[in-house]
Design a protein around this nucleic acid. Structure first.
Lengths: 240, 240
DNA sequence: GCGAATTTTTAGGCGCACCTAAAAGTGCCA
DNA sequence: TGGCACTTTTAGGTGCGCCTAAAAATTCGC
């Protein structure tokens, strides 16, 4: 018979980083807004062909990590959610570590974390977590899931959905576009910055007033233009 | 024609960690003793089938990294040597970092480094190197190649090849067998320990006298048995 | 110096994660 | 409500790094 059993294949490389990437991406789609994740959206986000998504969906479904039925959106099972949070915890702790200890700037950390999140051991992750004092937010303001899988969620509002006049503190800024992070940082916008919406236009972009860290003059800060894409990358929270 | 060209395959994962492992392993075989590396030896060391070695040898040869001629031992080209040193530099810096900063013990670092050496960026490696103050030796006493590729080599003698009565300082201990490292550490043997050969027997093992760090009584230290395999993992240098 | 033992290479396959192209299913709307 | 556009799945294929089995080359012992 030429059907040798699996033998002792070296599962060496890194667990199943591809699978982890799918779980992570599915999770991301429901983290800040709850849109159902269709295969085509997932494919576009991950930069793979739709057929690749179908394949992996079946695999993950068989593994009990995603709920998959043909022609329907994908959702994570409880176990899949836990696994996704684990990956995200790794990612965000690594980003935090790179910024806090290794001299990286916040817009430079994403790619490095993307790779390391799949190769660092639990042991090392714990060591990093301890060293940093168990942080709960990464440099972009994203919550870091705790080791037990719980996530502290603070209700937030996408800048692009805030009415003119709304003001609040920047809670998070998506880390997907490094160049956006760079320009925002240059304009003085980062997590914990307070800003208010001066004008908004879905196609042109937005203009916001940035309050200095010392916000003595609450509405006297500089006016800053924010692109349309920036508007859908910045979350603010209404002040207490 | 059903021969579409390579397309834009995502070379994502991690460069070519398999190739790097071959280069590293070939290099290792010539680092402390100069034995020609035959495919079978390489296969055994790496835990792969001999045919896999042949295949990779061809690939690396085509890439100009190894000199390969059928039925002959493998050697590294200048470029292959440089690449191998690069990987080894990564490995050893990571090991040093894990021990110096992350609370690892020296026998625990090998596996973690084995994975990370393929995923850390040059940028991060440099940051680690700086943080550690550009170390030249890793926790096992192995020299860390410098960024420019040069290696500080100190002539050393394998314990198993030292005559009875020889004494010297431990220069390095191979990191291949974690349990050996553990037992040696327990016996007080690590790099920079001074010891002398009391008896040797290729099959049974060795007995060495370990001088305390304060070596006031140069030959009054405890007697310690070292297994045969330990004898071929410990390198000592004659005292100045 | 020659045949046997060992090493190495060749030949053919496998699983993985991806792809393209074609087929099938869904859903909107005139 | 029937079409048609769009989405999703199926079918078939690729490169990579690995494997086993069989063929070929080398080396060793007598």
């Amino acid at each position: 018979m030429s059907i040798p059993e699996p033998v002792a294949r070296r599962t060496q490389p890194n667990a199943d980083s591809a699978a982890e990437d799918y779980l992570k991406t599915i999770y991301h789609h429901t983290e800040w807004q709850s849109a159902p994740v269709t295969p085509s959206v997932l494919a576009a986000t991950m930069g793979v062909a739709p057929s690749s998504v179908t394949e992996m969906a079946k695999k993950l479904s068989a593994a009990g990590l995603v709920n998959y039925e043909p022609y329907k959106p994908l959702t994570l099972t409880a176990e899949g959610t836990a696994r996704a949070r684990g990956v995200i915890r790794r990612h965000r702790l690594i980003e935090t570590w790179l910024v806090d200890e290794m001299g990286y700037d916040w817009h430079e950390v994403h790619d490095e974390a993307e790779v390391l999140e799949h190769s660092i051991s639990d042991r090392l992750l714990d060591a990093i977590d301890s060293r940093l004092g168990h942080p709960t937010r990464d440099p972009h303001g994203d919550p870091i899931p705790s080791a037990d899988g719980s996530v502290e969620s603070s209700p937030a509002l996408l800048l692009s959905q805030a009415a003119i006049g709304t003001s609040g503190m920047v809670v998070r800024i998506s880390d997907r576009d490094p160049s956006l992070l760079l320009s925002l940082a240059a304009a003085g916008i980062r997590p914990s910055t307070t800003l208010s919406v001066v004008s908004r236009d879905a196609s042109t972009g937005f203009i916001v007033r940035v309050a200095g860290a010392t916000e003595s003059d609450a509405d006297g800060g500089p006016l800053v233009p924010v692109s349309a894409s920036g508007g859908s990358s910045i979350w603010i929270s209404a002040p207490a």
